[in-house]
Design a binder for these strands. Sequence first.
DNA 1: CTGTTAGCGCCTTCAT
DNA 2: ATGAAGGCGCTAACAG
Lengths: 347, 347
Amino acid sequence: MTDFGALVAVRNTASRATLGSVAALAGVSKQTVSNVINSPHLVRGDTASRVNAAITQLRYRPHRAAAQLRTRRSRVLGLRIPNRFTDAVFDRFLHALTDAVGALDYRIMLYTAQDDKVEIGAYDELIDRWDVDGFVLTGTHPGDERTSYLSAAGVPCVTFGRPWDDSGHHPWVDVDGAAGTRAATEHLISRGHRRIGFLGWPERSGVGGDRLAGWAGAIAAAGLPALETSRAVNDAHQGRAAAAELLDRTQPTAVVCASDVLALGASAEIASRGLKVGEQIGVIGFDDTDVSQVAGLTSLAQPLVDVAAHCARLIAALLDAPSDESPEQVLLPPVLVLRGSSAAVFR
Amino acid sequence: MTDFGALVAVRNTASRATLGSVAALAGVSKQTVSNVINSPHLVRGDTASRVNAAITQLRYRPHRAAAQLRTRRSRVLGLRIPNRFTDAVFDRFLHALTDAVGALDYRIMLYTAQDDKVEIGAYDELIDRWDVDGFVLTGTHPGDERTSYLSAAGVPCVTFGRPWDDSGHHPWVDVDGAAGTRAATEHLISRGHRRIGFLGWPERSGVGGDRLAGWAGAIAAAGLPALETSRAVNDAHQGRAAAAELLDRTQPTAVVCASDVLALGASAEIASRGLKVGEQIGVIGFDDTDVSQVAGLTSLAQPLVDVAAHCARLIAALLDAPSDESPEQVLLPPVLVLRGSSAAVFR
DNA sequence: CTGTTAGCGCCTTCAT
DNA sequence: ATGAAGGCGCTAACAG
């Protein structure tokens, strides 16, 4: 009798309860126990409750590795953790995502990679050896080849970030950067500002272009002067220099920035000119990081909990029922968080 | 013949290569292939190279779930991702740790928990169901019950952070906060400062107490006046208020702070008094976060790559050979990163 | 040094 | 509605 171990398990709490030990205790077959867990509709009520009692008593937990061997599903999702958190938002997303996938009984497994090429090279091992079910990709950018590789490999993925050159045929979730800078700009307009500048990143496509477009759209819609923009990489010093140039060239009364770091640089420049941020010159950042909280900057908060929940839902749906339908795409608006840097009513 | 599938695998690259398909191609048994991978010393050279050729040709990768079922080892380590990154340093640690354990062929699996109680409640499932081999714990604190729970469960762990009330009998890695604030204080002394204050956290034990002790020790060793300290929770506004109080009460010419956020608050207060940080009053922070980089604060950088490497090494050693010897404990000094806020030679 | 046998815990298939 | 048999891919134990 191969299930002799079951009797041991009943009394030896140190050893792991198995389907067999539960079955023995409940007086049913292993199969019935499995059905209670995975296909409850197949089991009569009284049998089920007997089995459930045994499960509780033995503190039985199905062992994923064994199930995985049969079903070829690990319920593990791969996530690359970026080298540098240029994102400034990744940490909060990571927490929200871990929670969100956990609620659907998935787990996040981390990996690192220097760049996309290395990441793509890492997929095969993650898939074959660690049996990752799918991937959550962040930091999409024009020319991104990761999704098409995974698609070719037949491994589901969802991206936090749009495919910037519609090559992708996968579900994605993103934050509407344009809507954010538009809201910021309209907020400043409602405060009476008429000369509103934009301090952005050098890149003209992707996230930076998106945030630029929202500002430009709001300015145009309000019939305000289209001041030229200024650009800098995401660094407070460079941001300050670019802000100086912007102030000199266009004399704005407010500046919408593509990031909190740039906004901080702009604030430093404004303060050094003896002007008060939020009183003489309005400043709005992006991402609502702790930098903005510390500096009292009005900023745009990405709804990361919602982003994570959608990511989890979409990848789980794909794993439950792979479909050829056009994948769902979710675009969420950021939330304007008001602080002192945009407080004053202008004029 | 059960290994018929092997022949399919040879030509069908879409299906996964298995031990059996490699064995068939190399003309040996499955066991020999397994030995080539796990116990190479048992296999003759020519056999091994034939097998390796087959492995390469088929792009064979051992399937972890199957090995796991046999060996009861998943090569997966659990890591809780904190609700709030109060740590400010956790993100970099996470990246370094993922790299470090990856080099030893381990993976990090994430989980979340509201507090320690919830975390402890989550261990059983992580261990039984997901078959996590061990844990890397962060954020140790006085009264921490997590390590003793895991110890009782027989699951190895290593902590980033000392056991603050020597209950623990586990390996740990930590950064020597006292050495850091001591170095900071000595640096200020060498710059000519004689009245050096300390701005810390309310907690008197654990990390905060450690950082306080380093400052106090350096002050005492130099025979300088032991100015009273000021305390605030880790928040720039509170830090600024506490700094104001400290400046008024003790008239320091420099302030060592328990964190960058507090240092930023102190800087704001100093600047608001028309004094220049780094010129009239020196300020030193802790953790070398982007806040300090942006604000030009001298700060203490934790050697996170080394911390992570030691954590990986220690937990891997424990898993390779559980030992009853006294566990290894590693204390690493932080590095003083000089910036403008401590630049001026005083007097 | 190499091969054979057996079974880790679970789920799919088929029989009852 | 329940049970029995078989096998997912791997490795421990033993035989040769």
